[in-house]
Design a binder for these strands. Structure first.
Lengths: 349, 349
DNA sequence: TTGAAAGCGATACCAC
DNA sequence: GTGGTATCGCTTTCAA
């Protein structure tokens, strides 16, 4: 805008030359105001303004200081849906909190399935570490990250003892939910998940564990797991869940209790029930997972997990080398808890 | 882990020396496989593996190439709540889509009110441009960004013609909602907003415009705006809105029509109505704003705005200089539309 | 094909 | 307080 042909972007050197001091001094004017006298600093800043110098370049500074100032957060695109999930938001907030306190940002890197492009994005991401959030185990991005030699944490899969993990005991937590229903006398179960069971490969270790927990309990009371209807909503979405719930609610031998692998799905089931005039906690009991804010509002019985804390731990592991190397165990398993509200009750006879 | 005292992180040079070639060749082995013969490349990659060289450093590469590979997204912490808002998620998805197609990521930079720290984060953010998303006009971060001389776009405020803006015609869109109610014969209005009216300074230009739209219409039918109850939920949250709605629903001369500045708030109002046994669309009409997925489910009448497209435009403006300089106008105003569903109906007599 | 030289823009360290 | 020097780790001409 009327700047004239700015031959070239101004740099530290430009300013230094203009004022007749060394680069160091100009640098100090910006980064360590106390290292030089007031007047000189003013003169430098003034010259900078005049020359259109925009202040120290962030990239150069990063390079020199050996600190990128960001945490990379990788997730599969399926999860861009899941940003709608209050659980993810809580997690994000946790990571962001720690990042910010370290003067770092959060670099979101969406991974489109089978996209070559995203590999590049991961390779060139200017970050100090990565967090794998819902990235299937075998995903290529994982290789790329490992190759980069930066610290990384996974929240998906505690499978590899060498890779730091922050999560919960999926199996035990799921048992909490199922146990509760069994104690209430339920014997006809239904399960709702997001990913279709066939696609449930090793990649979704957490989900499989959760399902495994349900299964254990159900089999322990002598039931045949293969006869328990397990429906998939396709994605972690309330509307989709309400639709999918039809396969649970409109069948001959309707379950008296539904286990949902997330609150979002559980809420969808409740929606579907309401539509059919089915009373939650009386005719059908429903248990969710996560304990998102919405769950309390809906009086949903669920398994509480500390989402923000999970995020915070990840942040610390990545940004506080001390925390990572010394004290903390590589695998951090946070406590969960069953929260009984109004959507569960004794099995109808 | 049994690596021995790795004296120092391996670098391009290390590998070059080992293999007995120049840095250039090693660089090419990574970035331009077609520039050297297969064998040599293999030998180089092998040596790299042996030496624990992690591949070209992202920061150095950024510096050299003059491209950061990320868009910075600034938002105030109040908005970290709003990530729960489906509107934001849609917007994010739009930006992310474009970013990804350019091999860039999205750097989230939360701005805590009055936090010195965050200024630093903005200054040091390795990005190619910034998007201001719900950043009050006078916020310090804005200065910092301007000083950096990088391109930036705002989605909040079209006030400054020099700053690229991507948004909607807030006033006209709001009029759509109010007009609809007026046509239905309503004359007793209530309004619900997130931010308390007293705090509604210049900073929240978009919100003020929206409110202004309601006001215009209401005054055009000869009503006194100062007698219209305007309640604030404090934040854009469904639960908070349900609470705040009490001041609309439990008053003497209850409104027959409620204008909500967002769908999330409108949904909260509907919750509160349900609790009180008030029928939406009959006893009280409610109009939202945004048209989030949840709105369709709740059959909420609302103003639709293209959230993803808004994000995409922002991305393009930041990542495609051509798009920014030549064709596109600095201010891009996207179309909105009233979507009439079930929560509005004729004013009860 | 391969390599030498010249930066990209800044900061750390250590004398002065 | 101030400045010189050496790097940070890589890519990019351009010549061999």
């Amino acid at each position: 805008m009327g700047q004239g042909p700015r031959t070239r972007r101004a740099t530290l050197q430009t300013v230094a030359d203009e004022v007749g001091v060394s680069r160091t001094t100009v640098s100090n004017a910006y980064s360590r105001p106390d290292q030089l006298n007031r007047d000189l600093r003013e003169r430098i800043l003034e010259a900078a303004r005049r020359l259109g110098y925009a202040g120290p370049d962030a990239t150069a500074r990063s390079l020199r200081r050996g600190k990128a100032g960001a945490i990379g957060l990788l997730f599969t695109e399926t999860l861009s849906y899941a940003f709608a999930d209050p659980y993810s938001v809580g997690f994000l907030r946790g990571v962001a909190e720690v990042a910010e306190s370290h003067g770092s940002g959060l670099l979101l890197i969406p991974l489109r399935p089978g996209d070559e492009e995203s590999e590049t994005t991961v390779r060139d991401a200017v970050v100090d570490g990565f967090c794998l959030y819902c990235v299937p185990f075998g995903h290529r991005a994982r290789r790329v990250i490992e190759a980069r030699g930066l610290p990384f944490v996974t929240t998906d899969d505690p499978g590899d003892p060498a890779v730091p993990y922050v999560g919960i005991d999926e199996r035990a937590s799921a048992r909490l939910a199922a146990d509760h229903l069994v104690r209430l006398g339920h014997r006809r179960f239904g399960v709702i998940i997001d990913i279709a069971a066939e696609q449930l490969t090793d990649a979704y270790a957490d989900l499989r564990q959760r399902l495994g927990g349900y299964r254990e309990v159900i089999e322990e009371v002598g039931l045949d797991w293969s006869r328990v209807p397990v429906v998939a909503a396709g994605r972690n979405d309330r509307g989709a869940a309400a639709q999918a719930a039809a396969d649970l609610l409109d069948i001959a031998d309707r379950p008296t209790a539904v286990l949902a692998v997330s609150d979002v799905l559980a809420l969808g089931v409740l929606d579907a029930m309401e539509q059919r005039g089915l009373a939650a906690g009386r005719e059908i009991s429903v248990v969710g997972f996560d304990d998102v804010p919405e769950a309390a509002r809906a009086r949903l019985t669920t398994v509480h997990q500390p989402m923000e804390e999970r995020g915070r731990r990840v942040g610390r592991l990545l940004l506080e080398p001390a925390a990572a190397h010394e004290g903390a165990p590589r695998h951090q398993v946070l406590p969960t808890e069953l929260v009984v509200r109004a959507t569960t009750g004794p099995a109808p006879r």
